[in-house]
Write a protein that binds this DNA or RNA. Structure first.
Length: 545
RNA sequence: GGGCCGGUAGCUCAAUGGCAGAGCAAGUGACUCUUAAUCACUUGGUUGAAGGUUCGAGUCCUUCCCGGCUCACCA
């Protein structure tokens, strides 16, 4: 059974699925795993007949703690300030840093992926007083929470510590304040220069009413409070939070002890890695969530995350074979669902995986699986050859004309192939006409060189003006000079592309400057004397004697 | 130090406890218009190690080894 269905089968009654994101900057593609995973769970729950709500929250009152995108003076000014109060980068029309990176760029990918949660912003819930009762409860249980930090995670808090972050009235930072002395109506706080290493407080001391957007609960308490507020029943989290004695354990304990509520069902999930390493923003800035979402068809991106169980790390290297491999595997699963023969072992429930990958949850899976999908690698090659009617070739491969949907799939894949070749594809997928004669030409046989020279001469006379004409000419020369077609085409590829194979040679040559082609052919032929076939036969006969 | 995941063919990975497989790569061969195409075939394994459970273990249990991530500050 598909993992999300297994999960859903164990639940009953109405469900609220929740996921959250701290908007601390550019979001990379790995962060979409949580979003897609929660959406898949919500879909599976609905499939099992359970009324299900899917919520997505933005923790935009959390402090700014990533300085990658800030200028040096902005670091001093904004590190530790709630993300909702940090301005968006230059050129953005968004009202805040959080709204720019998460509200627009990251969440902008959701709808295209068929993901439509109810979205809420924590800054709004704090400001409008929704969180006030939870703040009071937390303050009343400060000693309990402090003890839980120690017993669950061995995190020691000072005896007078309160589970509360005040937004400094002087400098506006929330990450630097230390609150004490809850007297039932106000708390004291100090904005400490050295509370955390990544931000510097201003030293201000004051008292505030802990309500209505002046304060925020620490992450673990805030998390537990949300569970009660929205009656959340399922919420997964990344393994950084899910570790034993980690953040999730802390929040679970707080939920039980302070809010008297059993925490939601947890689904811990792994990250995306590049080359076995954690995905970082420094490596491949192109691997942003919105960048990859723009590149890949949505069902492929969903498929990327759904085909493996949550606890399994996913290898994703946009500059490697991940993307073509993803297309191949998707097509194989589709073949299986459509009843076409497939090789290799199939996953437990290919139909469920495919269905969950489709953007429209109500799509006809079998019909969709049956559509013709052009092999991506082949398409990537064809896309690089001028003058090829790709649609006609694909129709020929399919055997019948493409229908409208198949044409759309083809067009999209061509678009993806071009964009992929442009920005990510390994060099071996790229066809590049060499500026100068490749050194590898030395490995050609005399017969191959002779054929290339003869091809130049023949082309001068026959003036081929189309890909087909060039193709005929190459083939003819290979016949005339007794070079196998493979060796003939191989010699052409080597001379022009410095590789042993490539796109259809005739069309390639036809697309290039004619003088350049003739010159290159002659250069490749080198000093092998041009001879007619009969002279060649004579010479070869002499060699035999 | 705690936690999680992984270790299966050169690479990427699959296999309700039931004959260890696929894709790619490599190799061989076929192909008169054909180009990382197609087709056929081949090579390739002590499933990290050792014990245990079982009629039967890649799969379950125990203990190790190796790799990665993660927590122990904040979120």
């Amino acid at each position: 059974m598909f993992w999300a269905d297994e999960l859903a089968a164990g639940l009953s009654g109405p469900q609220v699925v929740n996921d959250s994101k701290t908007p601390s900057g550019t979001v990379h593609v790995g962060s979409l795993r949580g979003v897609v995973l929660h959406d898949a769970i919500a879909r599976a729950l609905r499939d099992h007949g359970l009324p299900t709500e899917f919520r997505y929250g933005v923790d935009d009152l959390d402090p700014m703690d990533a300085q990658a995108l800030l200028t040096p003076d902005a670091v001093d000014r904004y590190m530790g300030v709630p993300l909702a109060n940090v301005p968006a980068p230059e050129g953005s029309s968004a009202p805040s840093y959080a709204r720019h990176f998460v509200g627009e760029l990251f969440m902008g990918t959701f709808e295209g992926l068929g993901i439509t949660p109810v979205i809420y912003w924590m800054s709004e819930l704090y400001t409008n007083g929704t969180m006030d009762p939870y703040i009071r409860t937390a303050l009343d249980h400060a000693d309990v929470i402090r003890d839980l930090y120690w017993s669950v995670s061995k995190v020691a808090k000072e005896p007078d510590w309160l589970p509360l972050s005040v937004i400094c009235e002087q400098c506006g930072k929330v990450g630097t304040t230390f609150a004490t002395d809850w007297n039932g109506s106000t708390v004291a706080y100090v904005c400490k220069p050295d509370l955390v290493t990544w931000a510097k407080g201003c030293g201000y001391r004051g008292r505030v009413l802990p309500t209505s957007g002046r304060v925020k609960l620490p992450f673990n308490v805030d998390w537990a409070a949300k569970w009660t507020l929205f009656d959340i029943t399922v919420e997964g989290c990344g393994k950084d939070l899910a570790t034993a004695g980690g953040s999730r354990d802390r929040s679970d304990a707080i939920s039980r002890a302070v809010f008297q509520r059993e925490p939601p069902l947890n689904v811990a999930y792994e990250f995306l890695n590049i080359g076995g390493r954690k995905m970082s923003t420094s490596k491949g800035t192109g691997a942003t969530a919105h960048g990859i979402a723009d590149l890949l068809p949505p069902e492929l991106l969903r498929f990327l995350f759904l085909r493996h169980k949550p606890r399994r790390a996913i290898e994703f290297d946009p500059e490697g074979d991940t993307i073509p491999g993803l297309f191949d595997e998707f097509d194989r699963i589709a073949d299986a669902v459509a009843g076409r023969p497939t090789r290799g072992e199939l996953p437990a429930d290919p139909k469920a995986i495919l269905r969950q990958s489709l953007v429209d949850p109500d799509a006809d899976v079998v019909a969709e699986a049956g559509r013709f999908r052009p092999p991506f690698r082949h398409l990537a090659l064809l896309a690089q050859v001028p003058g090829v009617d790709v649609a006609a070739r694909m129709a020929a491969e399919k055997g019948t004309p493409l229908d409208a949907r198949e044409q759309a799939i083809l067009d999209e894949r061509i678009r993806v192939a071009r964009a992929w070749l442009e920005s990510f594809a390994p060099d071996r997928y790229r066809v590049v006409v060499q500026e100068s004669l490749p050194a590898g030409i030395a490995g050609l046989t005399d017969a191959q060189r002779l054929m290339l020279g003869a091809l130049a001469s023949a082309a001068e006379g026959a003036t081929p003006d189309s890909g087909a004409a060039w193709q005929d000419l190459i083939f003819g020369m290979s016949q005339t000079y007794g070079v196998s077609s493979g060796d003939a085409f191989g010699a052409v590829y080597l001379a022009f592309l410095d590789r042993s194979n490539g796109p259809r040679a005739g069309w390639l040559l036809a697309s290039l400057d004619r003088d350049f082609v003739l010159r290159r052919l002659r250069d490749a032929a080198g000093d092998v004397p041009l001879r007619t076939p009969s002279e060649l036969a004579e010479a070869s006969a002499e060699d035999d004697r």
